[in-house]
Design a protein around this nucleic acid. Structure first.
Length: 921
RNA sequence: GGGCUCGUAGAUCAGUGGUAGAUCGCUUCCUUCGCAAGGAAGAGGCCCUGGGUUCAAAUCCCAGCGAGUCCA
């Protein structure tokens, strides 16, 4: 029994003659106008009834249905809001991708800290659900990319203070929401008797509330969620997840109408894909040369229809249901599979291309982390699908077809990224293919199967799917066994070492203090101020001073804290660090000043100036980088300093030297233009409407008003301190670029005086090199190259001379006759190369060589010609032992030595005896 | 953010602490009217960089740089 039963007793249901029923199959409670209805109306209790039997008066395309929905709610008092990016990690750090329209407003709006862009509002939000990736194309109804059409209303209880939350009062609640739903259905010509409202309380992410599933002709077309509770151990409601919840001050209408499903129902096609991607499917089937006879087409149609009637929720269900379907349409399973599989691939390609268009269009750059990695996975999967089904159109063209349809303006960049990625993938496959081939050959020769361990490494370290290994291995004749739990074995390699997250508890004493007034926003060039000490907190190291107002900038937004002094009548205190704790600024000093004292604060002006210059320069470099590399450039992190600053940007390639120069040119041009740097505090909704999401390069601040910094055309939400005109920066010098991750480039640069210092450092290195070579700086590259070439030539010459010398020396040593063999024992103080060469020369003459050198410790080389029964390694071992070392090597050529050069001669004198002893031993 | 793998000739890669290797490509010659092919000879290596261990490091250890890949 639902704990929320009373929540569903709506006046609207009462007034419109609805009845509440319990489904005898699944036990769900539902509301309907049809007094004879018994079942809940949803699979598995009932089957789809809209296939080949469209549910509305007209057929709609995706675009038409979207417009229909948005304008319906617009006419009903809702403001239309532009969709948010699919990369939800741009405004929240708990998820990567946008999976529902409500994601757009979490957590700042739903918690009441920030007002919604409009209230009530309607939106059609593109979403991506990676969880469904295996089902796409197969089940007939799953897509990875979809649009969630929605209307939202944000309410607060009347009895809370009107200024406690960013919105106040009730806009509308349950009755109106259901009424809108009913009306939207009837506006499309649907029969209200066929609509079922199922009670299905919703729980998720610490929030909960009553919710209603809206079913029409067997398919769920909308979910109406009434978010109104939060997790609370003391709460009065216990919900289906076993936790207790209590009512919140805010309550939010969160609806979701699946655009694809509505479009599908309006057309009544066997699968959702045919309804939403008709042109793309035509293009792909033609391109891949897939043709069907009328008979085959009819077969496919009825097979898909049959599948549609079943409750197929997973690709696996599909596979097991195939037999049943084949029997249903009266053909062989294999015949059916041969027909369906290429079409499933085509459906998936269409869907994946749309997913990619969303991801890349919203500025995600493929990489090996986060959303970038997901994008890369989808892209590679799509490419594989294209290859297996025989689509030979370039992938960038396919993605572009979707990007065009979705109205993206950065289509050239999207294509460029796709091309780069496809090329990278091709290289990976080529590299991997060679590797597998080699490995497979090795195991084929030994007649062993390729072990699982190798498969794991191939996948984990080299990105080669096991089935690809199988294919290649087959060609070479090696066997492979892929364990069923392969992917969990992979997971096992990634030891889940949960990192400890230290949660800092807020100091209660600080919490009671009023927010510090921030003077640094009033005049960023002033460095002196007066204030009163409100409190002094004893810390493990020093004291934190809280003032009523301050000029000191606390560390934040990648800008380090100011330093300086605060002075009272009793003395002066050096401020070594400044931090902010929810509005209260803490000044770290070593000695304890008196609470309540009047102080004069003085910020280190030189440091502040340099930090401001670097901060403004960071905006300028970001702007210049975007101009040079493209609109997709987005900040991935930044850190400002006194000597230099760094800016990490997302980009799909390395930044070349020419591009660095161009960025530097544009940045410095902006500096020379000496444009004013201005700030404003607009309402966030106006700011977003005017500048879009790119405002938030360094994260999203809460609150109704946000601070914007303008530098020429560049606008960013930013809390840092800035110079007043770009000319104050003086100059910007990019010192280095590095690839900090795949898809993230780090630009390190210096501004102002630091720029000159950085340039001087580089020049010093050049001048020093020039002085060493005794040439002018301009001649350094040429000279260095010449020296390097000459050095290499000389090395070769030495090698040749060493060999010549060795031949000449070869006769100089003491000759010892050992029966049929002759040995030469010789001391020559030279390096090991020379010893080796001499030994080789002696062996060339058919003699055993025993050579010793005292040039660097004691070294031996012993070489034995073919057919002489002496183990060189053994000889060296014995000799080296005498000089306190060791040695060894193959029987015909051994080396060794030791530190005690004084015993070298002694050892060599014993050599004849050693030789005789080991001869034929 | 974490794990794993790899850096050796122009390219692709072998290499087990003990003399730096193969295949393709390149140069020259032979064969040919010429080309392809074939035959012969040859050139081409700071073995990524810097430390450490060792008598001895391409090889083992550490750090850095560069590249690839899997996971969250």
């Amino acid at each position: 029994m639902s704990a929320l039963e009373a929540e569903y007793r709506l006046d609207y249901f009462e007034e419109n003659d609805f009845v509440r029923r319990e489904c005898p199959e699944c036990g769900a409670h539902f509301w309907t106008r049809d007094h004879d209805q018994e079942l809940c109306g949803e699979p598995p209790c009932v089957e789809y009834s809209f296939i080949d039997n469209p549910g509305f008066e007209g057929e709609y395309s995706l675009e038409e249905m979207r417009e229909n929905f948005l304008s319906f709610f617009e006419e009903n008092g809702h403001e239309r809001v532009d969709p948010y990016p699919v990369a939800a990690n741009r405004w929240r750090d708990d998820v990567l991708l946008t999976q529902a329209s409500i994601y757009d407003f979490q957590p700042l709006v739903t918690s009441g800290k920030t007002p919604p862009p409009a209230n009530p509002l309607t939106i059609s939000q593109p979403c991506i659900r990676m969880q469904d990736i295996d089902n796409v194309g197969k089940t007939g109804r799953h897509t990875m990319a979809f649009e969630m059409m929605a209307h939202h209303a944000f309410n607060t209880r009347e009895d809370v203070d009107s200024d406690e939350y960013a919105y106040h009062g009730e806009v509308y609640w349950k009755d109106e929401t259901v009424e809108y739903c009913d009306e939207f259905f009837t506006s499309l010509g649907a029969d209200p008797e066929e609509i079922t409202y199922i009670e299905d309380p919703w729980v998720g992410g610490g929030n909960a509330g009553p919710a209603i599933e809206v079913i029409y002709r067997g398919v769920e077309l909308a979910t109406l969620v009434f978010m109104s509770m939060e997790a609370d151990p003391e709460g009065e409601y216990e919900l289906k997840d076993g936790n207790r919840y209590s009512k919140m001050d805010t309550y939010i209408v969160d609806t979701g109408y699946g655009l694809e499903r509505w479009t599908w129902v309006s057309q009544g096609t066997p699968t959702v894909y045919e309804a939403i991607y008709p042109e793309m499917i035509d293009f792909l089937t033609t391109n891949a040369g897939i043709t069907h006879t009328d008979e085959e087409a009819a077969l496919l149609h009825s097979a898909s229809k049959l599948a549609g009637h079943m409750d197929i929720d997973e690709a696996e269900d599909m596979e097991s249901a195939r037999g049943e379907i084949a029997a249903g349409v009266g053909v062989d399973v294999s015949e059916l599979e041969a027909l369906m599989e290429p079409m499933e691939a085509v459906y998936a390609i269409a869907d994946h291309c749309r997913t990619l268009a969303y991801m890349l269009g919203d500025g995600i750059v493929p990489s090996n982390v986060a959303t970038g990695y997901l994008t890369r996975m989808v892209l590679r999967r799509t490419k594989r699908l294209c290859d297996t089904v025989g689509v030979d159109a370039p992938l960038d063209e396919l993605v572009d077809m979707q990007a065009e349809r979705l109205g993206y303006e950065n289509r050239d960049t999207i294509r460029d990224i796709v091309r780069t990625e496809v090329e990278k993938y091709r290289e990976t496959l080529e590299r991997g293919g060679r590797r597998v081939e080699q490995l497979a050959q090795e195991y084929a020769e030994r007649d062993e199967p390729i072990p699982t361990e190798e498969l794991l490494e191939l996948y984990d370290s080299h990105g080669i799917q096991p089935d690809m290994v199988e294919k290649i291995a087959e060609e070479v004749g090696a066997s492979v066994e892929i364990p069923d739990d392969f992917y969990s074995l992979v997971a096992g390699r990634h030891d889940a070492g949960e990192a400890m997250r230290d949660t800092e508890e807020r100091d209660e004493r600080v919490a009671e203090l009023p927010d510090t007034e921030k003077l640094y926003y009033e005049d960023q060039t002033r460095t002196e101020f007066e204030a009163v000490i409100l409190d002094v907190i004893d810390r493990a190291e020093g004291f934190d001073v809280v003032l009523d107002q301050t000029m000191f900038y606390p560390e934040g937004g990648g800008q380090p804290a100011d330093r300086g002094t605060i002075s009272t009548d009793d003395g002066s205190y050096a401020v070594s660090d400044v931090q902010e704790d929810e509005g209260v600024v803490l000044h770290r000093v070593e000695e304890e000043p008196e609470k309540g004292a009047l102080v004069r604060g003085r910020v280190d002006p030189e440091r502040r100036q340099r930090l401001m210059a670097h901060h403004t320069a960071t905006h300028i470099v970001g702007h210049a980088t975007r101009e040079v590399l493209g609109e997709h450039i987005r900040q991935a992190g930044a850190q400002k300093g006194v000597e230099s600053a760094r800016l990490d940007v997302r980009h799909y390639d390395r930044i070349g030297r020419e591009q660095v120069k161009e960025i530097e040119r544009i940045a410095n041009h902006l500096v020379r233009d000496n444009v004013p740097v201005t700030e404003e505090w607009p309402h966030r909704n106006e700011a977003e409407a005017e500048h879009g999401f790119d405002l938030y390069q360094g994260g999203i601040p809460p609150g109704e008003r946000i601070r914007l910094i303008h530098v020429a055309e560049d606008v960013q939400a930013c809390g840092g301190t800035h110079v007043s005109r770009t000319g104050d920066i003086g100059a910007i010098k990019i010192v280095s670029t590095e690839r900090v991750q795949d898809g993230v480039e780090r630009l390190t640069f210096s501004a102002g005086a630091a720029a000159i210092e950085a340039t001087q450092e580089t020049e010093d290195a050049l001048y020093e090199a020039a002085a060493v070579l005794d040439v002018s700086p301009a001649e350094v590259p040429g000279t260095a190259e010449r020296f390097f070439e000459e050095w290499k030539a000389r090395g070769k010459e030495i090698e040749a001379l060493t060999e010549e010398l060795a031949e000449l020396r070869a006769g100089e040593g003491e000759v010892v006759e050992l029966g049929e063999a002759t040995a030469v024992i010789q001391r020559l103080d030279a390096d090991s190369d020379e010893l080796r060469a001499t030994a080789n020369a002696l062996v060339g003459e058919g003699k055993v060589a025993v050579l010793g050198s005292g040039a660097d410790g004691a070294q031996f080389v012993v070489a034995v010609p073919d057919g002489v029964g002496i183990n060189a390694g053994e000889v060296v071992g014995t000799l080296a032992d005498r000089v306190g070392g060791g040695g060894g090597g193959p029987p015909d050529f051994a080396q060794g030595g030791g530190p005690d050069a004084g015993k070298l001669d002694e050892a060599l004198e014993d050599a004849p005896d050693v030789l005789k002893r080991v001869l034929n031993a």
